[in-house]
Amino acid sequence: MEILSVLALVLAVLALAFTVVALRRTQRTRGTGVEELPEDVHGLRQEVAALKREAGDALRHLAVVRYDAFGDMGGHLSWSLALLDDGGHGVVVTSIHGRSEARTYAKSVSAWTCEQQLSPEEEEAIAHARP
Rank of each mutant, 00 (worst) to 15 (best):
E54A: 14
H61D: 03
L83V: 10
R28C: 02
C114R: 05
L23H: 05
G74E: 14
E2D: 10
T94V: 06
V20P: 00
I96Q: 03
A102V: 04
E36A: 07
P38K: 00
Q116P: 02
L81R: 04
G98N: 00
L16S: 12
S119A: 15
S95W: 07
F70N: 08
E47W: 02
E39P: 01
D86S: 14
G88C: 08
S108V: 08
I96R: 03
G75T: 08
H89K: 07
A8N: 15
R24Q: 11
M73N: 04
L7Q: 06
A55Y: 04
H89N: 15
A58V: 12
C114A: 12
V92N: 01
E36I: 01
R60S: 08
A15L: 14
R24L: 14
E122A: 07
G87R: 13
H61R: 11
Q46R: 05
D72Q: 15
A127I: 09
R30W: 07
S119L: 15
K107M: 08
V34Q: 00
Y105S: 13
R28I: 03
G43I: 01
S78A: 15
H42Y: 01
Y105H: 13
L4T: 03
L44E: 02
L51G: 11
E124A: 15
G98K: 05
E124C: 08
H128R: 15
V34W: 00
R130D: 02
E121F: 12
